[in-house]
Design a protein around this nucleic acid. Structure first.
Length: 586
RNA sequence: GCCCCUGUAGCUCAGUGGAUAGAGCACUGGUCUCCGGAACCAGGUGCGCAGGUUCAAUUCCUGCCAGGGGCACCA
């Protein structure tokens, strides 16, 4: 695909070779308004070099740059030189590229041979999979897709919270009040009840806490009864989690959770000891981080048992040894920023230069309209309920608007779940987030269903004309599909028919897609992809509204159909990157 | 108390060291013999406050204010 920004720099450097390509590349910007062109070269920085006012320089530059095929107009507006790309050329370039790359449009090989670990979701065993987990799950999944699409070899790890003192509590609660059959029937809500009850009762009877600690210790020491209960909790929980992952189309390459590292922590402690990093403090072992302006990292408790950070250190080392990662990404909430800073610093102090390849991707908190969630108090919105409500609402809409739709149930799931996922991926990660049923179940405007609808609508036009592939477009009116489609696209399409503003906006969004995916990877921000496809969908709907596609004129029809097909494909690619389905009909 | 994040339109959020700061929702009105109305179009006195750097700051720096989070035996 033609890189118009580079072409701009080429043109400029040819006339003004005293400048470096990179410095010009960096200052190029996008004008704030459409009628000001597509690219702009601000001339403020040239003032010293030319000893002139920027607007005079801009005037001179625009007069000096030669006519060329890439830009249909170059003119100065005040201190800027504005470039208007050749719309016919960009349309041709974009459509040919989408055709050539197909489902891989926007993909790349830039990550070839590099392993990227994405740790995400990581729910706690025996606790509900609530909307608090939705962000890590959805953002992590999208990031994994994006890295994969760019050629990285990804390893999705679900670092299950299957270890720790809460299991002592759970064992005590289950042994005291639990009933195996009741739990089997509805595992997580029942285990949650037990957990909540434990905390209620423990307020009156603090000795329960000691009992819980004791059971956790037994678990660590391999006590048979404790282990079997733990294993059972884990099994029934995973079964439930997998039901939800299946709904969302998410899978993992590894479920190595905290317990997986339980036998790998002594080595970590030894290592830190060897490096002389450990200090005794009030009976606990710590790594002092004062000179880095951080509180100490607590490696073992005064009773000798390990902590969260110890397990994470063991996990990081294990992952480096096992996967030799290029990046090790943790999609975990912003509450744990300090924890990761400490942990990465300890790795660095231990002499692991790959500590800098470990990246925490934080995101803001989820709260509810009526206050915060609390597992201990049982104030929780189950993710599955949210997904089911969204599906139910979609069913109602389908019943009302499209009762004859085939595969209704499948589509209802794809659209309902898509709505929830899309909403999660439409803001910067870091912002705190207020869960609202109204917003979650809104299907108009900048929403998943809107984008999916646009895709289905584009598909509908194509289907009406019996078009499944690009070749079909050339075979309309009973003609034969050309043997050489590349040649047909090159010689047999008048891309000049796609220069109306509405068509051009669609082209521009498709053109931006590959760079957007790369930017999303670099910033670890899937929502950049979301924005791009929303804007593409909006541009498409405007075009669709303004121009009939299936017109009598075969040349116009051909050009417009190519645009529709391209837009449809790119919307689908974008949705899939976000982990969302793109139904053909809805 | 110390550290981190956030503060843009009634609400939810984009955005950039520079040219008139944008979308969606909600609200009001309109499009509709035509390919899917989950659509399209029209309607707007907003960058928390105060300094500083700069030719140029909503964007960078400092202070303050507000909200959230974190700060040793939870994860």
């Amino acid at each position: 695909m033609i890189d118009f920004k580079e072409k701009l720099v080429d043109l400029f450097i040819e006339k003004y070779d005293q400048f470096e390509r990179d410095e010009i590349m960096e200052i190029i910007e996008t004008p704030p308004q459409e009628d000001m062109g597509d690219l702009a070269l601000p001339c403020f920085k040239f003032a010293r070099e030319f000893r002139k006012a920027p607007n005079l320089i801009a005037e001179e530059i625009s007069a000096n740059l030669p006519d060329n095929e890439y830009f249909q107009e170059i003119k100065n507006m005040g201190p800027y030189v504005n470039f208007f790309v050749n719309k016919e050329l960009i349309a041709s370039s974009v459509i040919k590229n989408v055709y050539a790359k197909g489902e891989k449009y926007g993909s790349s090989t830039l990550g070839e041979g590099k392993n990227v670990i994405v740790e995400f979701s990581s729910p706690n065993i025996a606790k509900p999979f609530s909307i608090a987990h939705i962000r890590t799950t959805v953002i992590g999944h999208a990031l994994r897709n994006i890295y994969k699409f760019l050629g990285f070899n990804t390893i999705a790890i679900n670092h299950l919270g299957d270890y720790g003192t809460q299991f002592g509590k759970l064992i005590v609660a289950f042994k005291t009040w639990g009933d195996k059959e009741v739990v089997e029937k509805d595992p997580i809500p029942e285990l949650l009840k037990l957990y909540v009850k434990f905390h209620d009762v423990a307020e009156e009877k603090p000795e329960l806490e000691d009992e819980a600690r004791e059971w956790f210790k037994k678990l660590e020491e391999g006590d048979e009864e404790a282990y079997q209960l733990w294993e059972w909790f884990r099994e029934v929980s995973l079964k439930e989690f997998n039901r939800i992952y299946e709904m969302m189309g998410i899978d993992f390459d590894s479920y190595a959770g905290e317990s997986f590292y339980s036998d790998k922590m002594d080595a970590v402690i030894e290592l830190l000891e060897e490096k002389g990093l450990l200090e005794d403090s009030e009976g606990a072992k710590i790594v002092d981080l004062e000179e880095f302006n951080m509180p100490p990292a607590l490696i073992t408790k005064s009773d000798g048992s390990t902590l969260y950070i110890t397990r994470d250190l063991a996990a990081a080392i294990y992952r480096k040894e096992t996967y030799d990662f290029y990046k090790n990404i943790y999609v975990v909430g912003s509450q744990q920023i300090l924890h990761f800073q400490q942990m990465f610093k300890v790795l660095e102090l231990a002499g692991f230069d790959w500590a800098q390849d470990c990246i925490h991707i934080p995101f803001g908190m989820v709260s509810m309209e009526d206050g915060t969630m609390s597992t201990r108090r049982g104030r929780v919105v189950f993710l599955e309920d949210v997904l089911n409500k969204a599906i139910e609402k979609t069913r109602e809409i389908i019943a009302e608007k499209n009762p004859d739709l085939p595969d209704k149930e499948k589509v209802a799931r794809e659209v309902g779940i898509g709505a929830i996922l899309f909403q999660e991926l439409s803001h910067s990660r870091i912002k705190d987030y207020l869960f609202s049923w109204d917003t979650a179940l809104s299907f108009e405007g900048e929403t998943g269903p809107y984008v999916q609808y646009t895709h289905a609508r584009a598909n509908s036009v194509l289907e009406r004309a019996n078009i499944r592939t690009c070749a079909d477009i050339f075979a309309l009116d009973g003609g034969e599909a050309p043997a050489d489609l590349d040649a047909a696209l090159e010689n047999n399409v008048d891309f000049g028919l796609l220069v109306e503003d509405e068509a051009y906006q669609v082209i521009k969004q498709i053109y931006a897609f590959p760079d957007t995916v790369i930017k999303a990877m670099k910033r670890n921000e899937p929502f950049l992809v979301t924005r791009n496809i929303i804007e593409l969908a909006q541009a498409f709907n405007k075009f669709y509204h303004e121009y009939p596609i299936l017109v009598d004129d075969p040349e116009i029809r051909k050009a417009r159909l190519l645009l529709v097909l391209s837009a449809k494909n790119v919307i689908k690619i974008g949705l899939n990157l976000l982990g969302i389905e793109a139904p053909e009909k809805m």
